[in-house]
């Protein structure tokens, strides 16, 4: 961990430490923001850990808990909402057995999250799996898509 943190630190040293950029880099490296990483940066940059915490909890994008290997993002913007994004979300929770107050499967294979608008309203409802966008989504289509990941660990198509 130390090695990676040093790499991030060297990248930000000259700019004086933009908290959002540091958190983004931490999250990209570890998949979430570990408390230890924040304390480590807090000491070296002389910025109170509370400041990091304040920023990390302000933006829904930052996670304080480990993330699953694959992330399923369901867009819940207006256009997707009226085309049934809520049903899709409930459906994904059901097939992956993720409880109401949680967002990650126990085996850390999947994390689900809601997005506000991802700007692809014209193909609503939209689901992102990792970085790929899938439009005009339906429950059955989504089940097949997710199954592709469950079986092969990596998506091989549907």
């Amino acid at each position: 961990m130390e090695k990676e943190l040093n790499r991030i630190l060297s990248k930000h040293q000259e700019t004086g430490g933009n908290i959002i950029s540091i958190l983004q880099d931490i999250q990209e490296t570890f998949g979430y923001i570990p408390e230890d990483a924040v304390n480590w940066f807090s000491e070296r940059l002389n910025i109170p850990a509370a400041k990091f915490y304040g920023v990390a909890t302000f933006y829904s994008h930052f996670r304080l808990k480990p993330r699953g290997k694959n992330t399923i993002t369901i867009c819940c913007g207006a256009a997707c909402h009226i085309k049934g994004s809520k049903e899709l979300l409930e459906h994904v929770r059901e097939i992956l057995s993720i409880k109401e107050d949680e967002d990650t499967t126990e085996d850390l294979k999947f994390t689900i999250q809601e997005a506000t608008c991802i700007g692809a309203c014209n193909i609503a409802p939209v689901v992102l799996i990792n970085n790929s966008v899938y439009g005009n989504m339906e429950k059955d289509k989504l089940s097949k898509l997710i199954k592709g990941f469950v079986d092969e660990d990596e998506f091989i198509g549907y």
């Binding site: 207006a78 256009a79 009226i82 085309k83 700007g119 309203c121 014209n122 193909i123 609503a124």
Partner: peptide, 12 residues
């Protein structure tokens, strides 16, 4: 505009 919702031709 992004035209969306209950419309036939969704699009930009």
């Amino acid at each position: 505009f992004t035209l969306s919702g209950k419309i036939k031709n969704n699009g930009l």
